[in-house]
Amino acid sequence: MKHSLLIYLFIMVLVTNLIRVLPMTLIRRRITHPFLRSFLYYVPYVTLAVMTFPAIMEATSSPWGGFIALLFGIVAAWFGWGLFPVAAVCCLVAFVCEIL
């Protein structure tokens, strides 16, 4: 069976955005349940942390480049640097590791 490229793309756009919109239509009020509130408080940090490591080590040609970029990024963020400076530091460190 021949599949249509446009139908594939339509499915991708539809399903991805439905997943995003669903909670917004269902949850309009403040959640007061203590466990749920605490759970949602931790979710963003945990998700981003899980997605950062070990993935950052797979982004560079040698895992060490990504790992060292991670360490420099953590130190820069610890001292209060913003989004862009931290990202730039990581790129720079990764780039240096790539060419060494």
Binding site: P44, Y45, L48, A49, M51, T52, A55, I56, A59, T60, G65, G66, A69, L70, G73, I74, A76, A77, W81, G82, L83, P85, V86, A87, A88, V89, C90, C91, V93, A94
Partner: peptide, 10 residues
């Protein structure tokens, strides 16, 4: 690596 750098900053 930039994307991960932003995650770290957050």
């Amino acid at each position: 690596v930039a994307l991960y750098g932003m995650f770290i900053a957050i």
